[in-house]
Design a protein around this nucleic acid. Structure first.
Length: 428
RNA sequence: CGGGGAUUGGCGCAGUUGGCUAGCGCGCCGCGUUUGGGACGCGGAGGCCGGAGGUUCGAGUCCUCUAUCCCCGACCA
């Protein structure tokens, strides 16, 4: 993209109402716009990050054999009746409204019940199982208090996956594969080292659910991390008995703040029984469908990453999710500008995402914006090096300047992104 | 939902014990000089002071109500 065409401008001042680092940086750099507390729009740059995160998740979910679909945001009251979760006293974060005819509708805060309703008439035989679907959806949750920028919104983007299984073993097998896939997702967005599989409350369904918690000072949860085992325990289930059960020693655990970026649930047969979703097994016997559900907060993930990777100059995106790989600018007049135009076309033609700062402003401003936006590579076309066909290149994370010819430049900026799932790579 | 803080051009802020055409910085527009880390000069535009009601000769400033935002806590399937 040409920066002269971008609708946003970077800001020197942050709106005073934003305290969270993620919101400050994302707003200053032009990634998001606040509509109201807990509701943010994704501007062109922000949307690119969201889409890049989604692409990674999509690849990993597809590799599990799950199929993408898209459910509705409007939900019927009847759908939620069997489990009692339409009741505001049971679920206190509902947004609700009425149709013109007076019928109640809810705005989806989860799609567990709706997916079961959908499955009821479609999954009728053991031959239909196992099956898995996922979606990227806007969820609505009427939080009493929105906070922390995009980390706890009333409207947010979530990837939710639902898997139907014939029995507990089959469910567990998928559950464990998904756990691995989730770890790959967090690895690929750059949070691998600071994200832990965390034992958390399983609600009324199982003893535990598994959360994926990223260590960050702005996190809302307190967890106890065993760094060598790469496992953590949420404080909500932290006690001697459970530590013994998990084989963890109190002395190995470190208490840290963390943000929940993913959560996976094992519902067993309960949802199927509650919602009357049964199938006939090979003996013609009626059996409940086993359900498991898997969530990743996509927009929250962007916030956590922004919180996690930044410095005094601004954001620092991992190459896999950055809105562009290269921030290109020319210093000088006609000659360097036309050389930069040419380089822009070459890079773009080679599939490199480029933010081309073609604005008529001084270099210092462009450097500052390149840093604030957090683009992995900064490429400068200048008179000094144009003669021998060299470009100046600098990584966002380093102060070292390199001078490379076109071939070397292309190689460098294309190499930083991974090319798909590690699963895919193995198959190749 | 309990407690605390805030609301004045697009953004950040100032505005004394109520007083005259509500200021400053950033940003924006025009002209010129500039061009390797957010340049400078000159000239401009832009404000129902969150909203409603009240006190007063006079309200950004005082009173009442209300809305919104932020933070701490509670909540978070």
């Amino acid at each position: 993209m040409r920066l002269s065409q971008n609708i946003t401008k970077t800001l020197k001042n942050v709106p005073a109402e934003e305290q969270a680092i993620n919101a400050k940086l994302l707003i200053r750099a032009g990634y998001i716009h606040k509509e109201m507390a807990g509701a943010y729009s994704y501007l062109p740059l922000g949307l690119r990050v969201i889409e890049n995160i989604k692409t990674i998740i999509r690849e990993e979910m597809n590799a599990l054999g799950s199929l993408e679909l898209l459910m509705t945001s409007l939900q019927s009251k009847d759908t939620w009746r069997p489990t009692g979760r339409w009741d505001d006293k049971v679920v206190d974060i509902w947004f609700k409204s009425q149709l013109k005819n007076g019928a109640d509708v809810g705005f989806g805060w989860s799609h567990e019940e709706p997916i079961m309703m959908m499955a009821r008439s479609r999954i009728t035989s053991y031959r239909d199982l196992p099956a898995s679907v996922y979606q990227f959806q806007t969820k609505f949750r009427n939080e009493l208090r929105a906070k922390s920028g995009v980390m706890r919104g009333r409207e947010f983007i979530m990837k939710d996956m639902y898997t139907f299984s014939r029995n507990q073993d089959e469910l567990d097998e998928f559950y464990n594969r998904t756990k691995e896939a989730y770890l790959r997702v967090f690895e690929r967005v750059g949070l691998g080292e600071s994200t832990y599989v965390t034992f958390a409350s399983g609600g009324s369904f199982t003893q535990f659910s598994h959360e994926f918690q990223t260590v960050t000072a702005s996190g809302e949860d307190t967890i106890y991390v065993d760094e060598s085992k790469r496992i953590a325990v949420n404080e909500e289930v932290y006690n001697d008995e459970i530590l013994a059960q998990l084989g963890l020693n109190k002395s190995d655990l470190k208490q840290v703040k963390a943000a929940e970026v993913g959560n996976i649930f094992n519902f067993g047969a309960i949802k199927g029984e509650q919602m009357d979703v049964y199938f006939n097994d090979e003996f013609g016997k009626k059996q409940p469908v086993y359900l498991s559900s898997y969530g990743i907060g996509v927009s929250r993930l962007m916030g956590v990453i922004a919180e996690h990777f930044n410095d005094e100059r601004g954001l620092i995106w991992h190459p896999n999710i950055a809105p562009a790989s290269v921030y290109l600018l020319a210093i000088g007049k006609e000659k360097t500008i036309s050389a930069a135009d040419e380089l822009y076309n070459i890079l773009t033609g080679n599939g490199v995402a480029v933010i081309y700062d073609d604005r008529d402003v001084r270099p210092g401003e462009k450097f500052a914006d390149a840093d604030l936006m957090g683009i992995p590579w900064r490429v400068v076309v200048s008179e000094q090096f144009i003669e021998n066909g060299h470009y100046e290149i600098k990584a966002r994370t380093s102060d070292t300047l390199k001078h490379l010819n076109l071939t070397a430049l292309l190689e460098l900026v294309s190499d930083t992104k991974d090319k798909g799932t590690s699963q895919k790579k193995r198959k190749d």
